[in-house]
Computed example of a mutant assay.
Amino acid sequence: MISLLLHTGNADLIAQVAAFVATLVAFGWPFLQRSTSADCRRAAGPPGPPGQVTRLTGPRPRVEPSTTTVVLTVALGVAVFWLLDLLTTWMGLGSLGYWSGEYPDDPSEIYRAVVLRSLLVLLPGILVVAVAMAHRLHSAAGSALFVTCVLYTVAVLATNLVLVRHWDAEPMAEDVYVPLLLGGSAWLVCLIARRFAARTQEVFDLTQAVKLEMRRGAPSARSEAGTV
């Protein structure tokens, strides 16, 4: 995708693709929330009698993510990683030469400089997303995050290839090895994210349990208000 920014100022194609991917993320998020809540309800078992307060202390039930949860999480993770890559690329290109006032002439040098600047925002962004994914996927987080990083790498490679061909531009070695390095860096960040998620899993599970109890209590509260 950096090839587009280096070879032409016309960003209509990539902007349309980015808007489409962002729309998919926006529509897919509610489905992921429903699937995650269903996993938690399954782990917690059937609700108790009306008026009984569910115990929110002690060990949480073991939550096993469903296939739907895993697939949706990976798909949304790849999309968000790609969008972060695009956003940070534009940010890196915009900051190029801002302080020094010098703009490199070599496209390869521009590519490397943009990537180095984008990493300052891209990797922390991937860390936040990976922690959220690991919280929801529990034991499936390791394999799912690995697949996400692989698909993210493939997506960036494919984007570079399509854009180079679309504008009949001169291919660069950076179009191939930089996405591979980004994918490897994303995987290392995901390993850190898994460790952090493991330490904060209890807090996340407790928050999910409270939300489920609030949702369960809402219909009964409405029915009681209707009978008064």
Rank of each mutant, 00 (worst) to 15 (best):
V114W: 07
A132K: 09
T207L: 13
E202A: 11
L84Q: 05
E224S: 02
T23Y: 01
R136A: 02
L161G: 01
A141T: 09
Y103D: 08
T159Q: 14
P179S: 04
L84I: 09
A38L: 11
I14C: 05
F20V: 06
L180C: 02
V147R: 05
L119P: 01
L182C: 11
L84D: 13
K211D: 15
T73P: 07
A197K: 03
H166G: 01
G183M: 04
G51T: 02
R222D: 10
R194Y: 08
W167K: 03
V115G: 15
A43T: 05
R222G: 04
R42H: 13
P65A: 01
L93H: 12
D106I: 00
R55H: 07
A140Y: 06
V71L: 15
G45H: 11
L116D: 05
V129W: 10
Y111C: 00
H7V: 07
V189C: 09
T153I: 00
V128M: 15
R222M: 15
G101P: 10
R34E: 05
H166R: 08
E109M: 04
H7N: 07
G142A: 14
L206Y: 08
L163Q: 10
S220C: 04
V121G: 05
T23A: 11
Y111N: 00
T57C: 13
L84W: 11
L24P: 07
L83N: 05
F27A: 13
G97I: 15
L163D: 03
A158H: 02
S139P: 04
F20D: 00
Q52L: 13
Y177C: 06
A11D: 08
H138K: 01
F20G: 06
M91E: 13
P47T: 06
Y111E: 00
V176P: 00
L72Q: 01
A18P: 03
L122N: 08
S220D: 11
E109H: 02
